[in-house]
Nucleic acid binder design. Structure first.
Lengths: 212, 212
DNA sequence: GGTCGATTCAAACATGTGTTTGATAGGCCC
DNA sequence: GGGCCTATCAAACACATGTTTGAATCGACC
């Protein structure tokens, strides 16, 4: 058939990425992956060895593709710290929010984070940590009086605000039936998260008062 | 053998709750559930019919048990609105955080929220919505100038800050190897989320200059 | 044309899972 | 004791899935 190398193998990677992102590793079946790729059942064994090896390759493939939508790099181009946070949040939300298209990268990562697999260490080391540290740097610039631990927790708070719209989407759509997570709504939510967090970070660690 | 009618069925419910919470519905196996319950493989079919029926019963069972740890009711007893939010967040975090014990209720719910199953509608209607509305009421008291939509988004922001420590726990433990999510750390995180959110809610809706 | 390596295909294999079956034992009432 | 119902058990069944196998097909090269 085709001189391959650019045919079946690549189609398998794309199909596998989509299926893994939709169903998760365990629930994804080789048969469906091959069906979507228009390949034979034995193609996975031939080109990758077994299911786990295919998964590892898909993670690496997604990682390569995802580097083009790096929130950290996008944010680096902004003018002031507040605007950097705004760009960071917006880019992050856009990566998670959009469901269709070849945007299964973020969904795959989110799945890998929710249920730890063999590829998590690699994902965290080269995918999550750099972005997380970039966010921490923004926070430190916003409020230099924050301790390292407070910076960590504020970063978790910001990322958590974003991720709930992905992790709890089925619940949110039932809680707010009118909610439509289209591009415009994502923009509004990003703006809310940015303002919410800016106010919190600015006033965090206030001397005096609050609690024992 | 044993004359117990109060034995096998209840042990099955407990074991199933734990296994479902740990592995998820699809990944949980009837054999492991029965092994943990010390029952025969056919016990599930005999007492509940099939796996799905058992799952529904487990959801209902968890729902009954979880009502005793209601963040909304705990918060209602607090004095001022800020303290109500603090109690709400702390109770919520304690329910999610603790891993051992018969506290598989929250983990089960979280799983059901992440991947929608047949029981999600019921869980949202009678489990999530009341708590969420209680949180919204607290926020309205904290800052009456907030619009309904802003209250919704602030509530999502608060819940999201809590849930990340559950959904992304594998990532966090790799990001911060020294992190130990014991009772004391959960208390500290709850305090951070409370202060973070109080500052944000107080200064939200910036057009009104709501708060100094 | 013929050979060879790479690739694809349909079928089979091995395993794990949910479910069913028929048998067995114990309690209860007559 | 004799039925009768409930509960449990080991074994088997039906099915889906990951993996392997051996033949068939294609393209390139001599």
């Amino acid at each position: 058939m085709e001189p391959v190398d650019h045919g079946t193998r690549e189609r398998l990677l794309d199909a596998a990425g989509e299926v893994f992102a939709d169903r998760g590793y365990e629930q994804a079946t080789i048969r469906e992956i091959c069906r979507r790729a228009g390949a034979n059942i034995a193609a996975v064994s031939y080109h990758f060895g077994d299911k786990k090896a295919l998964y590892i390759e898909v993670i690496a493939y997604a990682h390569r593709c995802a580097d083009e939508y790096d929130p950290a790099r996008e944010a680096a181009g902004a003018a002031d710290p507040a605007e950097r946070l705004r760009v960071f949040v917006r880019t992050f939300m856009q990566r998670i929010g959009h469901k269709g298209r070849p945007a299964w990268h973020a969904r795959l990562m989110a799945r890998e984070m929710a249920s730890p697999g063999a590829a998590l260490d690699q994902v965290v080391r080269s995918g999550v940590r750099p972005k997380f540290e970039a966010l921490q740097a923004i926070l430190r610039t916003l409020n230099p009086s924050l301790s390292d631990r407070e910076v960590e927790r504020c970063a978790c708070s910001i990322v958590g605000q974003c991720l709930i719209y992905h992790h709890a989407r089925p619940v949110l759509t039932r809680l707010f039936p009118t909610l439509k997570l289209d591009a415009r709504e994502i923009e509004r939510i990003s703006e809310h998260i940015t303002r919410f967090s800016l106010a919190a970070v600015a006033r965090a660690h206030p001397r005096g008062g609050a609690r024992p």
